[in-house]
Every structure is written in C-alpha cells, then in structure tokens.
Design a protein around this nucleic acid. Structure first.
Length: 632
RNA sequence: GGCUCCGUAGCUCAACUGUAUAGAGCACUGGAUUUCGGCUCCAGCGGUUGGGGGUUAGAAUCCCUCCGGGGUCACCA
C-alpha cells in the first residue's frame, strides 16, 4: 500500500505540484493511535511548491488519493499531516491472504546470494560462558533471519585450538593432575567431569602457579637479589619501582602490573609452555598426541552445550589448519605495493591516510599474526565457495578496530567482495552485580546458567499447575523450552551493539517483554483452536473492531520486519515486533468472547485471526531459535 | 592522550531513512474480569532524551563542544 501511494504521488507530481519530485519527499508513516487513520503523509515538504496552506495542500492530495486508490476510503488533514483511512475490506482481504499463505513472511529458500555467518569461535582451553551465549544466539538468529529473507546461509565457526593458551592447560594437566590407582591422570572418563570443564580447570591451575611463581620472583627482586636475571631486567625493575614515587593509587597499580608482567615473563612455567608450543609447531609426536586428546575432550564438552542450546553449524574451521594461511597474500600485497617491508623483515600496511595507523601483517621472523590468518581465511572461504556473496562475523565489539582494518586491507588488495563483509559487533553482557571478570571468578558458565533458567522455569510451571496429563518427559521438554526460550529472548531483544545487563530471574518471568509471556499467548491460542470445531474458512464479518483491525495491520507488517531485521542484522527487531503483536492480541482476547460468540461468521473470523497470530508468533520465535509449546 | 561506541522514567529496554503530545515492561497506586487458560485488561504516577551551542518548517536522531562510562591502540589471539 505504501508503495502504491508513493508511486501514485510521484507519477502525478507534475499535476499536483507543478514540478517533479524525488522519492525522499514522500514520507509515509503509521498514523498515531489517538487519531483516526492508518497511514499518514507528511505534507510540509510540498507546501512551498504548492503555494498554499498545509491544510489546503493536504486536501488536494487527499482528494487525489481517494479518487485514485479505491482502498483509501477517506482522509483527514490535521496540523500538516494527511491521515488516510484504509477500508475494512482491504484489511479483511489482507487477512485472507495471510491465512492462505502457509509460509507467511518467509521468502523462497535459496533465492538470494549465499552468505556465510560465523559465530561462537571458542578457545579450546576453557568452557563457554555468558558472553558466548549472546554471541551464539545472535549469530544463529541472524543466520535464520537471512534464510527467511531467501538467502542461502552457511553457518560456521572457527575454533581457536592452538597457541600458547592451549599449551598452558596442557602443561598444567601434565604437571599437576593427580595420578590414580590405575596410574592414569584425570580424564573426563575417570572423573565424570565434562571435558571442557576439566581442561578449563587446568587452565586455571596454570594461572595459579604462574602467579605464585611471579610473586616469588618479585619478592627476590625486592630483596635486591638478581642472581639469575640479566642487568636489563634489574635496571627495568629499579626504574619501575622508582617511578612509583609520588604517584597516586591508580598509577601505582598500573606500574605494579607492569612489574608483574616483567616477572611473569621470567617464570619457568611460562618458558615451559613456550617450549611446548615450539614442539607443537614442529609436530612433536608426544605433544601433538596430548593436544589432540585434550582438544577432543573439549569438543565433546562443547557438543553437549551446543545440543542444549539447540544450535548447529554447517562448517567448522580449525585455527590449527588456518594459522599458516595468508602468507602468500602478504607476498601478493607486497608486489602490488599495498604492503611494505621494514628493515628487520617485518611487513606492514600504512593506513594513516585512512585515519588509522600502521598495522603489522607479518612478523620479522616471517610468522603470521592474527590479521594474516584472517586475511587468508577470508580468501580461502571465497575460494571454496564460488557463490559466496558475503561473510558476517559475529565477534564482540572489543574487536571493532581489528575488523575495520581487516576489511580495509581486503579492499585495498582488490577483493571486490570485501565490501560485503560485515562485523556483527555486539556489546558486553553485564550481570546485576556488575562486570564479569575471570580473575575474580565472576564469570557465569554457560551450562550452569542454562541449568539455572530451566530450573526456575520448572519451579514456576509446577507452581502454576495445569500440567496434569503431561508425562515426566513432556514436562521436562516444556520447561526446557520455557527456560531456554526466556534466556535466548532476553539476550536477543536488546539492540546487539549495545552493552546490556542480564538478569536471569527476569528472563523467565511470565510478565513483560519475555519469551514465556509470548509462549503463553501462543499456548492459549492453541488451546482455543483445539476446542473449536469445524473447518475454519469464513472470513467475512459484518464489522471489524479497532483492535482486530490493528492486529491485522500488525500482521501485514511481518514480512517487512523480517527484511529490516536482515538488513540491520538485528534479531531485536523481530523480538520487539512479536511482543507488540502479543500485547495487541491480549487486548483483543480480553475484550471479546470467541468460543461463545453467537454470530457464527464473527466467531470464525476471530478464530482465524487468532490462528494467524499464533502462526506468526511461531515463525517469529523460530527466527530467534525459540520453540513455542502448544500448551504450558 | 589518539581513535571508537554508548548516555532516554527509580530499574531493564523501545522509538524505521529527522516529523504530531518521546513509548513499553518491571516496581508503585487505584480499578475491571475471575468464564476460551490461572500472571489477562484499563487508568494513574513517573522525562529539560547527560549539559550547552548549531543546522532545519521540524532533532533523542545530523554537526560542534564539554561532562560521564565502555572498548581499543602488542612482532597476543
């Protein structure tokens, strides 16, 4: 309808305004609730051209539209706004179309270019936490939304399975894991501990010893004992210590941290870890075996977590396979003059002209850095997917700068697809108690959190009753849907780029902007439909009340909501839409009787309206990876 | 310090590419219904959109500046 009105006005601009106009001048918006009408045209932009008052201008355009478009039944001009009323017939007809369309809102699958969505990207040295949950739900949901928009989507994750941090947990396990009666060290099998948790435990263990050793070294230095250390270190320590004089508390803390770093670099345990990494890179059999074994523990653990989350991936990339990629691209870039080499052999790109700085792309020992890898991986992905049109990287906003540089480099190297790469950047998740800090042990584990929300959902469901006839298994599935749905919805309803505060208790509330509230409305409609008898096919009520009309209006918006969510990579758009729809439906539900309605046509209309609301809710929730139960 | 993102009701969040009186929920107060499904509905309370300036017929939205907060500025990933 909006398109129709716009094009009518533009086509007839010459007669209406004595001048052609561009599309931007025609601004249509939803009419405010207090005023009669469905669509509103802003007429200020035309007033000058028409040389008359806003009132007169509105009437001229209004008369024109009523004459040209049959569905517009009347209009009213208020304060420079032209409010157009669209006929009831039009809305009833819209509902008929929606009712007839089983895939309402969804575009033909695979009709649009392929997009790769990368999300999760965990390290294999510790379990997933709350931050990963936002990442994974976001990425998964964006993938679903893009599919709904007709794109072919490849869901992927890159697993950071190598590097010094992995060696740390390996080393700690080797050094500190107790040996049982059978002569074995701790494994997931003999302890029953989930693999990722067990490996994470040893990563923490490493850190403990690491810190203790550093502390001991500092104590030696403070006594003036530098026996085992070079004069450079001695000088640096003395310089830092003297720098503390007369500084405030904050500055002293910063210097202490530097001293700690200095000491950490001297620890034997870190040296061992570094040696282990060198061995790994040389594919030393023993180290490589240990690495494979422990990583497998972690994968098994992650697998369980992903299953609970109900997310999946189409393709996996392992950093151990990709970390050497990109070097040939550096060569290519050098030839093209995009990169330059410094005297020590390191390779850089100068981005100062773009308002950024110089960025390293290859170390002086000619090993790759993070940026090199990412360049290589991107090119690799395009090579192995000739139909790939874009990549969406779901990564926290602390890496905004990295991706800005990455895309810029790819663009400078001449890859035309670089402009289709998008960093889906999201803000940190805070807890009611404040920021998560791994050092202070305030990190919320993903498995624990999911258990917690399911447990609260179980409690609330049992309290509410109405679960008779449900088997133990059904009840458990139901609570899983409610708890996890609440969690997902809570994390997705907020604009991705904003930092947010997560409150577990609030996420499973049956009131307010929550998944359970929406799920409940859906369940109620299902029960209503189950109680009705006969075929639902009559959609011709003699009259349609305001709330009903409002609901249809909201339903017709659904396809454009999906488009908008896809364009902005924002599941929050879908979430907030769904909530609005449910609130409207509740209003309707409160104000009319449905099953006891004596007018058979009206009863059918209301049932069909309800059915299509439920259908839309279900589709919308599916785009966020949330299941809706038929009863709860 | 440079760059960057953010600042909206007591709290958690909305507001499409600028547009009418900035909206929901939670909490609080009052009322309706207790009947298809029980936490449903209506009303009230609550705001100088961090401060100031500018552009515009019109600014939470765009520009400048200041204040406050986050992130980032490694031959880490």
């Amino acid at each position: 309808m909006e398109h129709l009105i716009k094009s009518k006005i533009i086509e007839n601009a010459q007669t209406l305004f004595n001048a052609p106009i561009n599309e931007q001048l025609v601004q249509l918006q939803k009419t405010r609730k207090e005023v009669e009408g469905d669509l509103t045209l802003v007429i200020f932009p035309f007033v000058k051209m028409m040389r008359c008052s806003p009132q007169e201008a509105g009437q001229i355009i209004g008369d024109f539209l009523v004459k040209e478009i049959p569905a517009i039944s009347k209009y009213e001009v208020v304060n420079g706004y032209l409010n157009l009323v669209i006929s009831t017939d039009f809305w009833v007809n819209e509902l008929k179309n929606i009712h007839a369309d089983d895939n309402f809102g969804l575009q033909t699958p695979n009709s649009k270019p392929t997009i790769m969505v990368e999300y999760s990207s965990p390290n294999t040295n510790k379990p997933l936490h709350l931050g990963h949950l936002r990442n994974i739900f976001l990425g998964f949901s964006v993938a679903e939304i893009l599919k709904a928009n007709g794109h072919k989507v490849v869901k992927t994750q890159i697993i950071n399975d190598r590097g010094i941090h992995i060696c740390k947990s390996m080393l700690a396990w080797q050094k500190f894991s107790p040996i049982n009666a059978q002569g074995e060290r701790e494994t997931p099998q003999n302890t029953g501990i989930k693999g990722d948790k067990l490996v994470g435990k040893y990563y923490v263990e490493f850190d403990k010893h690491f810190n203790a050793e550093a502390k001991a070294i500092i104590a030696l230095w403070e006594q003036g004992n530098f026996e085992n250390y070079s004069t450079a270190i001695k000088d640096e320590f003395i310089r830092l210590t003297e720098a503390k004089n007369g500084k405030d508390e904050k500055a002293i803390k910063a210097i202490d941290d530097k001293i700690k770093d200095l000491a950490k670099n001297q620890t034997s345990i870190l040296k061992e870890a570094k040696e282990m990494l060198v061995k790994w890179e040389a594919k030393d059999a023993e180290v490589y075996d240990l690495w494979s074994t422990m990583n497998q523990w972690v994968y098994d653990g992650f697998e369980k977590t992903y299953t609970t989350m109900n997310v999946d991936f189409d393709e996996l990339y392992y950093e151990s396979n990709t970390y050497l990629l990109g070097k040939d691209i550096v060569e290519e870039g050098l030839k093209k003059g995009v990169f330059f080499k410094k005297d020590d052999g390191s390779v850089w790109i100068d981005l100062t002209a773009d308002g950024l700085d110089e960025k390293l792309v290859l170390r002086s020992d000619s090993t790759a850095v993070y940026m090199t890898q990412d360049m290589g991986t991107a090119v690799e992905r395009y090579n192995s997917h000739p139909d790939l049109s874009g990549i969406v990287y779901t990564v926290g906003n602390e890496q905004d700068y990295h991706f800005k540089v990455l895309f810029l480099i790819l663009d400078k190297l001449g890859y035309s697809w670089a402009k289709n790469c998008f960093h889906l950047s999201y803000g940190m998740v805070d807890l009611p108690e404040g920021k998560m800090k791994s050092r202070e042990g305030t990190v919320v584990d993903a498995d624990d959190l999911m258990n917690e929300v399911v447990e609260s959902a179980t409690e609330m469901t049992k309290e509410r009753g109405h679960i008779e006839g449900l088997s133990e298994n059904d009840l458990s599935n139901l609570c899983q849907m409610i708890g996890l749905g609440g969690l997902k919805y809570f994390l997705l309803k907020v604009d991705p780029k904003k930092r947010m505060k997560f409150n577990p208790a609030e996420s499973v509330e049956l009131n307010g902007n929550t998944a359970p509230f929406i799920q409940y409305a859906h369940a109620r409609i299902q029960s209503l439909l189950a109680k009705s008898t006969g075929e639902l096919n009559t959609i011709n009520p003699s009259e349609v009340n305001d709330v009903e009309k409002e609901i249809i209006k909201q339903l017709t918006l659904f396809p454009s909501i999906i488009e908008e969510a896809g364009r902005d990579y924002a599941p929050s758009v879908v979430a907030n839409y769904t909530y609005e729809l449910v609130k409207l439906y509740n209003q309707f539900y409160q104000s009319v009787t449905i099953l006891n309605e004596s007018d058979e046509q009206l009863k059918q209309f209301r049932l069909i309206l309800s059915k299509n609301v439920a259908k839309t809710i279900k589709t919308a929730m599916k785009l966020m990876g949330i299941d809706v139960p038929n009863r709860m």
